[in-house]
Design a protein around this nucleic acid. Structure first.
Lengths: 236, 236
DNA sequence: CAGCGCATAATTTGATCATATTACTGGTTG
DNA sequence: CAACCAGTAATATGATCAAATTATGCGCTG
């Protein structure tokens, strides 16, 4: 077990709060760290998130933490639990169905545009990420699998040159990140098929429609796993 | 000119900050007020938003304002202007195209679900809102037009029972609200066709596909106006 | 002598923290 | 079982520091 008490030592290196460095604002740093925590399942669904807890973990004041949490709430990564309390939301089966629809529609469109704009260098980079992903699967490295899988999609979003659609798609990851981790933790990395090769091949060939189709299937297959796990939990 | 100095007196009634009332948290109140300001075009695209300005207008401390602003930034309603400054974003034509795609896909789906779940009471309420909308058009009351138009769609979202899709669709309004106001301000309320009657009729008849189609056209027609205005501005 | 530009000063605004106040939770007691 | 009581955490303010923009003035050039 990694984080025992609460959000724990995962939040290792501090942003050196008080003396504003020459770099990023603290609220931004906090946001990014929490984002990764959620994205890669370091925070479990249902887990409470306390402002003061985060403050201590990262050695920052309440204000930046507060801002980061509001931001994550707005993105659906966290949720106000009724009165004042904030938790990592637990997805319902219905929620997953919504996510399937949204992801499938938006990501297909993004891949379509990405295919039309892709440069050779970009495709190469994408293939690299996918290779790293396959390697993580080989090694059974769950955390790395989740990360590379996300990077693969996120890089595609960036390639599409459609900032609004990209931010929508990106935001959806925050919603199912924690649940995805749970599912993959059970199934192991081996049993997680993806359509990345198919998508890549189609993109290399400039076949935007085929690439979109592959991505659609990739999304649906992945989210199906989550849905299945969730409906089993519901019975248990 | 309305807001001369900055965000101005539009932010009229204060939330009675210091003595924490028995009600809503200040950051929530601030968020909602700013939200309406953006949604109904009280803040123009490109207009800078200063934290301290808002603080004075609403007589609250910086922290709640800060939180509201972060939240709105996360939703795309506001944008970090490079270094620390925050502005109401100006849409590009490309942005509008993205919005058209996203709205059309998501809202059609929401209407589909709403039609299947609609109760008579809900349909009646929807018709009421639409009547208020028509009246606003008659009177040439732009502000009211924008508000009722939003309410119509928002109520539909709520009917669909799909919270994630609803929050996505809802969030998109914040992105084009300011620009929509500009466009409607030029065209006048008369020249703004909508497909609400068609959608309502289809919903009453339980024809989900037809309702979705009407909504799709409504969205596209409305956003086309914005796109057209924007591409004219680009030339001028 | 007028106009331009750069450098520095002043003001505005943002970021962060520490602290006081208020609300919620959970457990205990009458 | 209801109501109280303490502990814990969230809300909100104001002060302080840092950064960025705007204003100012001096010197230089044409």
């Amino acid at each position: 077990m990694r984080g025992d008490k609460n959000t724990a030592e995962v939040l290792s290196f501090t942003p050196s709060a008080q003396l504003g460095a020459g770099e990023l604002p603290a609220h931004e740093v906090v946001y990014r760290q929490m984002r990764e925590l959620i994205l890669f399942g370091e925070l479990a669904p249902g887990q409470p998130v306390t402002i003061q807890g985060i403050c201590e973990q990262l050695n920052v004041g309440m204000t930046p933490v507060r801002e980061a949490i509001r931001r994550l709430c707005a993105e659906g990564a966290l949720a106000f639990q009724g009165n004042r309390r904030v938790v990592v939301p637990e997805l319902t089966v219905d929620n997953v169905n919504e996510l399937i629809f949204a992801r499938q529609a938006i990501e297909a469109q993004l891949v379509l545009r990405a295919t039309e704009r892709a440069t050779d260098a970009e495709l190469e980079r994408l293939a690299e990420i996918d290779a790293a992903l396959d390697e993580a699967i080989e090694r059974g490295d769950l955390r790395n699998y989740l990360e590379q899988n996300y990077r693969f999609h996120a890089y595609l979003y960036a390639m599409a040159g459609a900032p609004i659609l990209a931010s929508l798609a990106d935001g959806l990851w925050l919603r199912f990140g924690p649940s995805l981790r749970v599912v993959c933790g059970r199934l192991g990395t081996r049993n997680l098929p993806d359509q990345h090769h198919e998508a890549l091949d189609a993109m290399r060939g400039g076949d935007a429609q085929a690439a979109a189709k592959a991505m659609r299937e990739d999304v649906i297959q992945g989210m199906e796993q989550v849905r299945r796990a969730l409906s089993e939990d519901a019975k248990a």
